[in-house]
Design a protein around this nucleic acid. Sequence first.
DNA 1: CTTGACCTTGACGCTGGCGGCAGGGTTGGA
DNA 2: TCCAACCCTGCCGCCAGCGTCAAGGTCAAG
Lengths: 144, 144
Amino acid sequence: MLIGELARVTGSTARALRHYEQAGLIGSSRAANGYREYDESAAVRVRNIRALLAAGFTLEDVRPFLGCLDHDVLAAPPSAAALRIARERLAVLERRIEAQSAARDRLVAALAAAEKARAGAGTGAAGAGAARAGAGTGPAAAGS
Amino acid sequence: MLIGELARVTGSTARALRHYEQAGLIGSSRAANGYREYDESAAVRVRNIRALLAAGFTLEDVRPFLGCLDHDVLAAPPSAAALRIARERLAVLERRIEAQSAARDRLVAALAAAEKARAGAGTGAAGAGAARAGAGTGPAAAGS
DNA sequence: CTTGACCTTGACGCTGGCGGCAGGGTTGGA
DNA sequence: TCCAACCCTGCCGCCAGCGTCAAGGTCAAG
C-alpha cells in the first residue's frame, strides 16, 4: 500500500502520515523507487493513533502505546507507563470538561437572570441587581 | 493602576495584559508618559477573561462576552443581540463538552478493557481477544 | 513522447497564548 | 548623578499538528 492509499483508508493525509513517521510513530519500508510501502497493520495502527490524538493525546503521549497499536486496538496488555499516561490524559480531559461545564452552567444562569431582568425591568438597573446575585458563581469568583 | 500592579492583582503578567489589549479584550487610558492606566473594573474584567480562558475558551470566544465582563459578571444589559450571542456561545460550549465527553468515554472504555485484559491474560493472546471485545467503543472505532 | 497522477524531501506558514529579548524612555530615591 | 525599577514598542521563539508550496523523480496510459 502506498502512502496515498493509506491516507485514504485511514481518513488522514499523506502529510500527516509522514509527520507520524517523522515522529517515530509509524514505520515504512521503501520500494526500489523510494516510495513508502505499508502493510495492512499500518492502517489499524494509524487509526489507533488518530483515535488517541482525537482523545486529546499528543504524539509524544502516543509513543508509549506503540507496542499495543500494532495488533488491533489500544487494549492490548499495555505497559504500566502507557496506563499512567492514559490516566493522566483522562484527568486532564475531566478537568477540561469540568471547567467547560462550569462555564456553561454560569452562562445558562446568566441567561436566565437576564431574561428575568428583562421581564421585570426594562432599563437594566434592576437587571444589574439580579445579575449581581449570580456573581458568586460567576467567572469573577473563579479568579484562581 | 499601572500594568504591573494589574498583573499582580489578577495573577497574570504585563505581557499577557498587553496581549489581551491587542486582542481588543481590554482597554486602557494612557498617562502623559504613555503608561497604561487602569481602573478597578479592569481587574474584574481580566479575572473574568482569565476564568473563561481557563475554561477552554479562546480569546476570540471571549470577545462576545465583553459587554458583560465590564460591570461585575457576565450578566449584562440584556440586549437582544447579546442574548443571541450568548446562546450561540452556549451552543458552541455544549458541542465542545459533548465532543470531549465522547473522547473521555472512549478513553475510559479503553482503560477498562486494558485492565481487564491485564487481569485476564499476561501473554496477550487471550488479552487481545478481550481487547477486541472492547474495541467497539474503543479508539479503533473512532476512525472518523 | 507527453500527460497527469502519483511519489520524494525540504522548508515555510498557520493558529493560540503568551515568554523573552532588544532597545529605548521615565521616575523616584540614595 | 546615577542606579534600579518601572514602563513602552516591536519582533522573534515556542509547542503541536499538520497545510501548503517548491522543485523535483516515477510510472502507467494514451
